[in-house]
Design a protein around this nucleic acid. Structure first.
Lengths: 266, 266
DNA sequence: ACGGTTACGTTACGCCTCATAACAAACACG
DNA sequence: CGTGTTTGTTATGAGGCGTAACGTAACCGT
């Protein structure tokens, strides 16, 4: 039923692997990690990786400690040495999820010409979509209604990770604005509360983005997220894949047109 | 902890109540229901209502049979007389959810002048949004990733209910088209697969709606759904309510502008 | 009105999961 | 080599799902 060999990574990863993971997590890397700490970190990673594998395999955001432990060749109570309870594991997975989504978008954009904003927008939105389609459970976990019973910690590291991931989107608008390629959006009326709120919460953006463009950016996110949500949860399954692709491209052209981003060629 | 008195409706409802419920469910009403069938139907309804109350109270899509039964003054195994298992209860709730969403939109639109399409669009989208905000659990249940472990039946009554609810949206486009008030959408390029798929699956629409308007309708749904999803799951919590309202109105103006629907005045 | 039938609700039970407690082995280190 | 820490184990309790077996009450044809 469960394929032990496939999902079980090596118990003691290489030093490089550990360093990569540590760097990825943003830890300052205090000179070096003791042997024990490295082993512990590896186990934590293996738990998270196994949980993700099981989520993928069972197509659900529900993860049973029992299953994780069995796949890892351990017993369930041992996992409590690494995560106080299920919520803590989920929070860690959510942080990783935002990181993964942000990284996927960043990866897709990185090799492209910085001047080619239409291509960067296409690649970024396509990466968002592809990530959600490939990992609908993760997508549901971070941007949908999470697992029943799970209560997201307010203002925790999850919020940080979310902001970081979403900055991938805003940086596109900032780049366009700084290059002078950001047209005024289709909707230019901005309510007072909108302009005010922009000043209070995202001040780093209001220096470079006019309020109507900030508003357009949020609407762009909503457009992107709407399509991707509907697709990820199967509400576009009645369409042929090619039709979905075409609809998505068309949708993103619309988003760019409406928000003032440079429009990708048809 | 649990308020028995509040959530427990009368065990034997009035005949009018029963007739209303039956009519609501679309049952053909075969002359009349026997006393037994009426009682059974009442219990089924009470179970669903209690489940909804508990979902609202605990802010989760997870419902425990034990809790439902306790609130109803029964024991858990008794519920299996009415629903084979948890999935069947959830499927029933999903059907009701789609019905409720569709009804909310229909209610909002019904009193308005049939000629005033901008007002109807504003009211419909606002009803969609308000419904999702008032019942985020239901919203997640029907249009998000459902409860872990729940497997939606393919092509069941849930699909029917979903189509019926979504027809509220398409009927707006159809009305606009029939009245000659539907402008060509901003994006007019339609891929071949899109136009073809339209013919195969939603043939009743392709008679009145040009393919580019059908495409625009789907994009409009995606725009609406994207905003509503993000808001319902708390990703717009950093905005003031007034700012969210303004953003939504602006978003819906954009949707109408882009899709060719008559645009509401600012 | 009466006995058979059907529906409903109960208690008892088996299985599973989460989570804790108490215990054993492995390891680091003076 | 001993000592304390870390990591794993087994044992245990609480609680949910779903089934089985059993009473009981309501319905219904005669």
């Amino acid at each position: 039923m469960l394929r032990y060999a496939i999902v079980t990574p090596p118990v003691t990863p290489s030093r490089d692997e550990v360093l990569r993971v540590v760097a990825e997590l943003g830890t300052p890397l205090p000179a070096a990690l003791s042997r024990r700490e490295r082993a512990r970190q590896a186990t934590v990673d293996e738990i998270k990786a196994t949980a993700l594998d099981l989520m993928r395999e069972h197509a659900t955001t529900d993860v049973r400690f029992t299953d994780i432990a069995r796949v890892m060749g351990m017993t369930a109570p041992a996992l409590y040495r690494y995560f106080d309870d299920r919520d803590e594991l989920l929070s860690a997975l959510i942080v990783d999820g935002f990181d993964s989504l942000g990284a996927a978008v960043a990866e897709a954009v990185r090799p492209l010409d910085e001047a080619d904003l239409p291509a960067r927008w296409s690649a970024a939105s396509q990466a968002y979509r592809a990530w959600a389609s490939a990992e609908p459970q993760m997508f549901a976990l971070i941007l949908g209604m999470p697992v029943p019973g799970y209560q997201a910690p307010e203002e925790g590291p999850t919020t940080e990770a979310a902001k970081a991931a979403m900055s991938q989107l805003s940086s596109l608008f900032v780049a366009a604005a700084q290059r002078g390629e950001l047209r005024p959006p289709l909707i230019r009326e901005v309510s007072v509360s909108m302009a005010d709120c922009e000043k209070s919460k995202h001040d780093e953006l209001c220096d470079v983005l006019p309020p109507e463009s900030f508003q357009a950016m949020l609407q762009t996110w909503a457009m992107l997220h709407g399509f991707v949500s509907l697709e990820a949860y199967g509400h576009f399954d009645w369409m042929e894949p090619e039709a979905r692709d075409a609809l998505f491209r068309s949708h993103m052209r619309l988003a760019a047109t409406a928000s003032g981003l440079p429009v990708p060629p048809a």
